[in-house]
């Protein structure tokens, strides 16, 4: 037994202890501990994140001073165009209201939203989920959809603690959401591709979908409302067994750069 020295014995004891701990954690026993520690850490994480965001903004501003003149001119031109666009959109707004009623879409203003700061991201750097600073105390529940301000779906709540919650992003392999292509009405399931992107799967062969079509949530499950924007159809292909069509989805937002998100509590 000379092989097991005091040092090795200590190391082995720690390893065995940790394996037992992991096993206990797998039975859900770690949630209260994680919740307490996350609750205690949340104010620090939030403060650090806000300060870091401020720093980044400041350096970004310094770097962009040279471009300000050109940018200003561009913005003035854009402003003129937007004034004209605004007038047109007022008219389209009325039409949109009628269409939403017909399609059974809920006006976005009727969602009960909870604004939250992103306070921490995946420490393994895979970018498949992040932690927000609102939890049970603000009525956040598992399965609630998470959007960015303009109604773009980014993920859903998977773990809830007292004052924080974990958001699983669309890009995660285990994420799956019912979706629909607006032009053709083709339905399918939005899935993450190994954390690298998003695809729409299980689209019937009878449906015609093309690059550039827009994809929204279909609202088939009770957890996600109909009409949340997911992205645009990219390349269209066939599933491995050729039974369904598959399409790459181009997301409109960079999921790793989110700072503030909204959880839909009621729809």
């Amino acid at each position: 037994m000379k092989y097991i020295t005091k040092k090795r014995g200590k190391f082995l004891a720690v390893i065995i202890l940790l394996v037992i701990l992991i096993f206990i954690s797998s039975r859900g026993a770690d949630n209260p501990v994680k919740g307490i520690l996350l609750g205690a850490s949340a104010p620090f994480l939030k403060t650090f994140r806000i300060f870091a965001g401020g720093f980044q903004g400041f350096f970004h501003f310094l770097g962009s001073i040279g471009d300000l003149k050109n940018e200003n001119q561009k913005l003035m031109e854009e402003n003129r165009e937007l004034l004209a666009e605004n007038a047109r959109l007022k008219d389209v707004g009325k039409e949109n209201e009628t269409l939403r009623k017909e399609l059974g879409l809920i006006p976005k203003s009727r969602y009960e939203l909870e604004a939250s700061f992103v306070i921490a991201q995946d420490p393994q750097g895979l970018g498949n989920y992040f932690i927000i600073d609102k939890g049970e105390n603000k009525g956040i529940k598992e399965g609630m959809p998470v959007i960015v301000s303009s109604g773009i779906l980014v993920g859903k709540i998977t773990e809830v603690y007292r004052s924080s919650a974990k958001v699983l992003l669309l890009t995660d392999q285990s994420s799956s959401i019912n979706a629909e292509v607006t032009d053709s009405g083709a339905r399918g399931i939005i899935k993450g591709i190994y954390g690298l992107g998003v695809m729409m799967d299980m689209i019937s062969q009878a449906e015609v979908i093309k690059e550039g079509d827009e994809v929204i949530t279909s609202g088939l499950s009770n957890e996600t409302p109909r009409g949340l924007y997911v992205g645009k159809v990219g390349q269209v292909g066939q599933s491995g067994d050729k039974l369904f069509q598959q399409a790459d989805i181009i997301l409109p937002v960079d999921l790793s750069a989110l700072r503030v998100v909204f959880t839909i509590k009621k729809f």
């Binding site: 992991i22 954690s25 770690d30 994680k34 850490s41 921490a120 420490p123």
Partner: peptide, 10 residues
Amino acid sequence: IDIGSAWLWG
């Protein structure tokens, strides 16, 4: 680090 990790505690 497990506070913010997707892994099980430990």
